[in-house]
Amino acid sequence: MRLKIKHVIYCLFGFYTLMIYAFSELKTTPMPLIIPEGWPKPVYDFTKNPLTKEGFELGRQLFYDPILSRDSTISCASCHLQATGFTHVDHDLSHGIEGKVGTRNSMAIMNVAWSKNFMWDGGVNHLDMQPLAPLSSSVEMDEKLEQVIQKLSATKKYKKLFFNAFNDSLVSGQKILLAFSQFTLHLNSYNSKYDKYIRNEAGGDFTEQEKNGLQLFRKHCASCHTEPLFTNQNFEKNGLPVDPTLNDLGRFSITRLPVDSFKFKVPTLRNIQFTFPYMHDGRFKKLREVLNHYTETAALKTQIILSSNEKADIIAFLLTLTDNDFLFDKRFGFPRD
């Protein structure tokens, strides 16, 4: 009987406390994703991770913080620099902790809300799970999620940031991953000269060469690099000879289906002016080399035939995919406080 009375008292006390909490204001500020007109519906399910200013800010801090790596030397931004479309410029293979070199060229981070899977082989099945790969890779950050949680929990700064974003200062793997998505989902590029041309806006006047480049692009390239995202999100075999020093089987290593051998994810071409070197192993430094590969290879379903002038036109068009608003947006840069 005494136990029951105790229970009732605890219940009432609990209920009272709950009411106080229920009516206390949630301090998060919604920050919904801007979906450009005419774009497809995003793949990401925002109902499970509603975007907020506070979540974005936490994700941004995490993105730029080397605390994530085992020896606090490498942050996400080490290989994903804003000014080059959030990728590692001028390295064929990206390098991480202690100067160790990986087996692929880092991918650009852009318009990820529309991506079904991630990495060159599509091994990561959801944006939320993407940070786990570089985090645990022995040649990138070489760190365990449990360790990151401990390190973040020991700082006042992150306790506060987690509280702001989730109304709870307790750090967890789930919250870290959701916060990363909050940041990267906003890394959207949709204000290039090409976009302005499509939208008939000021600054979108194409030269004759760029117009011709777009026509040629639509004829020869767009089946894989489909507008407006400039990727069909599929895995394709593009005829690159295998690099025997890497023997990268691509998508096959995930699906184990022979048909997927040497297939790699079709990357976006947005901001391609700055994302060099190109291809999954960064083997080409210049766009001209990429186009030469596509006209020389016999591996494509339909042979691409382009004159030298036509290649120049396509490259002129590709340069219209540069989006300086995105590359220099202060909200996406290193957080200076």
Partner: peptide
């Protein structure tokens, strides 16, 4: 289904990254 919590939190070490 993305990042889940509780026993399904990847911090439990029962999740593959690559």
């Amino acid at each position: 289904s993305g990042a889940l919590g509780g026993d399904l939190d990847p911090q439990k070490g029962m999740y593959w990254a690559w």
